[in-house]
Amino acid sequence: MTTLPRNPFPVNWPARFGWLALAAYVVWAAAQLDFTWSRFVSGLDNAQRFLSRMFPPNFSGDKWEMIVKGLTESLEIAIIASAIGIIIALPIGLMSARNLSPVWISWPARLVIALCRSFHPVIVAIIFVKAVGFGAIAGIGALVIASIGFISKLFAEAIEEISLKQVEAVRASGASFFNVLTYGVLPQVFGRFLGFCTYQLDSNLRNSTMVGIVGAGGVGGTLFAAFQRFDYDFVLAILISIISLIFAGEILSNILRAVFLDNKTISGWFGKGTSTTTVAKRGEEE
């Protein structure tokens, strides 16, 4: 045994070195990107002017019409892209789950997912604009690709985490492949799948407000044009509208989860009925 004095708080040299390296990197990178104090200060000056031109937000007649038109298109793009994306993502996700699919199916499926995920929706939108021209169809195409990449990947991961014991029991009853899926697999992943879908709808909505910047339809085009005209009070009006819409979407998806996962009912929300889960929990305590 060593007779060295024991040190209850040994210095973690690799960690210290790591922090030092990080600090050095920050200094170097900031210099590379030409971040200087004077730029920052003059920026603050700009910010003041910028903000004062933003207020009050401009919701006047014709502007409001443009916002509504743009947001409607964005919403439509998001809904259609989510629907198509989810329908395609379901089988791809299932195929790429390594605990249910043989390697020769899961590998190509994983490759498709990797391809869909590797490019930002805006870049995909540029390619689609080139292929199908300016407008909503390009936006839908870009967001379908993004949805496939996101949902299939998470869906596959969810399936890979399920309990195979439950699946085994359903299989032992002689159920067909599809019945095993609907009774053994789906109940275990449905909640998470619903979560991914509502998240994706949400994220498609956010992205659909953006693909317009490259000409793929929706409110993004209006927003970009307003920026280029220095029409900042209109910019703020558009931003407020986008945020409100996304907020509303988030509330809706919370309700959706409550209905489908906790079997909430309308009376449940007003405290009269009890959901099955609460009953179930009570049963366990007894």
Binding site: F40, N46, F50, T209, L223, F224, I242, I243
Partner: peptide
């Protein structure tokens, strides 16, 4: 989270160039 990174970029371009 609601404001996209491209939109954030547009905002900061208006401020810092």
């Amino acid at each position: 989270r609601s404001v996209n990174s491209l939109v954030w970029a547009l905002l900061f371009i208006a401020v810092f160039g």
